[in-house]
Design a protein around this nucleic acid. Structure first.
Lengths: 218, 218
DNA sequence: GTATATTTTTAATGTTCACTACAAAATTAA
DNA sequence: TTAATTTTGTAGTGAACATTAAAAATATAC
């Protein structure tokens, strides 16, 4: 046998010294995310978090730092590029209309997923706020603006390559689509069915088609 | 002179015995409403309320009962029929399109009124919630549903008297308009200007016109 | 084995929360 | 005047909040 060996974990990486964690960090983060998603940042108590994450406060603080840091990490997890419905829809190659339809319809479906709280965490979990959590409100607003900016960029790109007529007012159109999208979150949270949300998407897409037609001079 | 006289207040009604209130109840209620509007129910502390209302806690409790009762009264005040932009718009006589345009444009203007917090109190002040304030969340949801139902009724009435083609799907159309309206609240809260919101309204009304035209078989 | 490092559980900590007891103040009624 | 009534300001109350101190537990390193 060779010299002294080091302990390794399942992935072959050397394990840290000391007592090992009794929980999976990502699983716990997902559980925390769902609580924040349902109740919002200020409506969530530490008691709710430790119950959902099945651990005691010191473990939570050891792994995540504070309630606010945990929330920020939960938002990051929710909004990660490979998981964000909006990002995935807008990065989809092909006609811009397909991307916009995916933006609306995939989000609508996600908003009423029976496995998760209804509506979008980024829209719902820190809209009204006390001054202490103003930083979190700003974080979520910047993420909403990021989505809007990505939509604008996608529309501008389409206009540049002929997928959209040059006379289309991209910023106005993006604001309109974001309004509908934000509204879907409220309605999903209020108990709307997928059929209802899809009905809204149908009208929105009909509106898109007509607007593009008109701008083409149809 | 006649027999013993009773004290009367400015409106001629007999004044109550005891030390008179040092504040105007409706003014205080309006001040409380603005705090709730800005910060939401759970984000508002009693300290914030008594500061804004310029009184001490016992006066607040004597006049309004509790934080929750004060919130309910503030919502009632905000949403009173003679003050609710939505109710006023939908009760407006004349073409249904004018009512819908007023619904969107008057609300958009109110949402960015520099004199008040931006967006709609009914949409923003209790969206995410801890179980203790679930009753308030339900109250606001029922008010949102009430507005949607009033819109549906107005559209149905228009369809009945020929103002809308019979083939229009009233419920779907109402959901679409409510989605846009809810979305305007989010965007107003995020700092959108009246011009941006009016742009969204322009597209929505163009969509309305096209939808009605199509249903007419145009 | 012993030392070191990290997480665990238990049990607190100080702060902030909505709310209130109490007595002084201000009014009407007789 | 005196009694009755109501609101006021001061100064609390207990409960719930996010956070942490301390020591036992569990792992690696040597």
């Amino acid at each position: 046998m060779s010299s002294t060996h080091r302990a390794t974990d399942a992935t072959g990486q050397p394990r840290r010294r000391g007592r090992p964690r009794a929980f999976d960090r990502e699983t716990a983060l997902r559980q925390a995310m769902e609580v924040f998603w349902e109740r919002g940042y200020e409506g969530t108590r530490l008691t709710d978090l430790v119950q959902a994450m099945r651990m005691n406060p010191p473990s939570l603080y050891g792994a995540f730092g504070s309630k606010e840091k945990l929330f920020r990490e939960a938002v990051e997890f929710y909004n990660s590029p490979d998981r964000s419905t909006t990002t995935l829809a807008l990065e989809r190659p092909g006609p811009v209309r397909d991307a916009v339809e995916a933006l609306l319809r995939d989000n609508a479906r996600a908003y009423v997923d029976p496995e998760t709280p209804h509506g979008c965490l980024v829209v719902l979990s820190a809209i009204s706020y006390s001054p202490e959590s103003e930083g979190l409100r700003d974080l979520l607003r910047s993420l909403r603006e990021q989505d809007r900016d990505r939509l604008r960029a996608r529309l501008r790109a389409a206009r540049a390559d002929g997928g959209l007529p040059g006379s289309v007012d991209v910023d106005r159109l993006a604001s309109f689509l974001m309004s509908v999208l934000f509204g879907l979150s409220i309605q999903a949270r209020d108990g709307a069915t997928l059929a209802e949300l899809d009905g809204v998407v149908d009208i929105t897409l009909a509106s898109w088609d007509h607007l593009v037609d008109t701008a083409r001079g149809g």
